[in-house]
Amino acid sequence: MAKSHKPVVWFPFAAGGTVIAFFLPVIVVLTFMAALGHVPAGLGYERMHAFAGSGLGKLIIFGVVALSLWSSAHRLRCTCYDFGLRADTLVATVLYIGAIAGSILSAVYLMKI
């Protein structure tokens, strides 16, 4: 049977696409409210810090950020190719390294909270 590394890329991509579809719009709404000067009560330091400080909160935040990053990296790779940037190996390397670095950084920041 032919082996492929595609499932490894594909699973987080599909999971990320689903997470982005379900959760990113409402998260953007929350920071948009902050951008308009109406910071939602839950985005205050005390409550955000308490949420990100709990085990479940860390897991949720890391899951959303890491999966969204990975899915975006994969989609950006396809977007670059479709717009005529055909150096796919280079693009994929840069984007995937970026997504992995972003995920590791998120984990490090979450551990500090």
Partner: peptide, 8 residues
């Protein structure tokens, strides 16, 4: 979002 986590 990652920058926000760093700031938090």
């Amino acid at each position: 979002l990652v920058v926000g986590l760093q700031r938090l």
